[in-house]
Design a protein around this nucleic acid. Sequence first.
RNA 1: GCCCCCAUCGUCUAGCGGCCUAGGACGACGCCUUCUCAAGGCGUAGAUCUCCGGUUCGAAUCCGGAUGGGGGUACCA
Length: 464
Amino acid sequence: MSIVRTRIAPSPTGQDLHIGNAYTALINYVFAKKNNGQFIIRIEDTDRTRFVEGSEARILESLRWLGIPHDEGPDNGGPYAPYRQSERLDIYKKYAEELIAKGHAYYCFCTPERLAEMRQDQEAKHLPPMYDGLCKKLDPKEAKKRAAGGEKHVIRLNVPDDGVSTFHDIIRGDISFENKLIDDQVLLKSDGFPTYHLGVVVDDHIMKITHIIRGEEWISSTPKHILLYQFFGWELPQFAHASLLRNPDKSKLSKRKNPVWVSDYKTKGYLPEAIKNYLATMAWAYPGGKDIFTVLEMTQKFTLEAVQTTAPIFDTEKLRWMNGEYLRMKSDAEIKDLIKNFYTDEKLDDALLINILPLIKDRMKLLSEFKSLAGFFFERPRELERPLQESALKIGRDALNNCDWNHDAMEKSIREAAEKGNVKAKDVFMELRVAVTGKTVGPPLLESLEILGKDETLKRLTTK
RNA sequence: GCCCCCAUCGUCUAGCGGCCUAGGACGACGCCUUCUCAAGGCGUAGAUCUCCGGUUCGAAUCCGGAUGGGGGUACCA
């Protein structure tokens, strides 16, 4: 039994790691670790037209931030380096030519213009858009000569006209496609770069990937990959296609309708543990119905067979709840560091933070909520949420002016003054709250005032 | 159009032929606690298990079809 090896193969074509990639990365990672195997990252940068500078670095950084470590990859290397397809061009060329020699691929000299015309024609006739096989009829020797002579060309897969390609999907069972419906896919582009289909099969084989776990958008190209494995005479890996994450309107999760970059969630103040846990519940249900579990716990119980077949909607409401749960599990010292890390360009005092935290940690679901909850500790509110009621405020101000500065003394003083003034105590509390914090909601008032101090509190009560 | 995948509360799901008058979680709502808001506790509403056939003594669970949703259909991944 060979060692289990899984991989994700992101393309550096976006500004960061897509949350959908994080989701498949998590499944791949957990499955590998469950089986004491290895998890690999391979960068599939074969489309120069969509290449985004710096994307790879940000993808790797997001994976690191999430805490999904890889055993081999473009940054840490490994026995099958390089892990960047643009650096492996010779390999793909060699294998494409091997296919040609075996008659399983052919040179194609059709121009993009001819192909466009052909497709238009097919559309008019209500035929499925497929390559018409013009260059397949070329004499192989002649074609080889033309290609060698520098004529612009691609290499296409020679798909058999009959038969059926079937593969077993661990999550979904057997899936079959009729060969005659499979297009003669381009394998090597005219710029010498492979297409995904060639690159992925060659590299997965060379890198000894045992389980291909990817999104369901790849199901319909899997038969092409199966054919390739057969033509090369290679052992087939196992396949598993996980469902795609969706927008609330059920379409494939997209940046038009949702934040999709991992960094978006980091910026919003989500914790990596919460994101991973939430992503995990999208793919798989923990036995016994547990909602909150760590990646380590998941690693013990996970099976691919139990992965969801239905495509879930990515609902940030539940993610928010989960984030709050994780925040509350942390110690004050940990939260302090998280907050300081989150608000990097502000100098927040450690001692003050530690004092504040017990008052706000239960009220905070996202790190980004810290400022609206506790901002008043650091600066006077610029404006008040609503106008003050002077009579109730005055009672509170006088009560605080004449008492010791501790919770019990303040409470006693305020309640007595309220009763004397024939005002509800809670109204006095509220006026004080608005005057001091600027808001009608927030952490417990008296505890906050203890921290804020008598001088600062009274200043806020009088200068308004 | 053609090919493929999927189908249980608004959302995420449990369920793998009798234990289901369908369980849990998020969200919603109500109550308790209370200086506000949370957190916590307790509760309520919410699903004719998409529909129609079939198999079976018995179906959310198995089979077929329909419908709906999604994905694919590129010298993009």
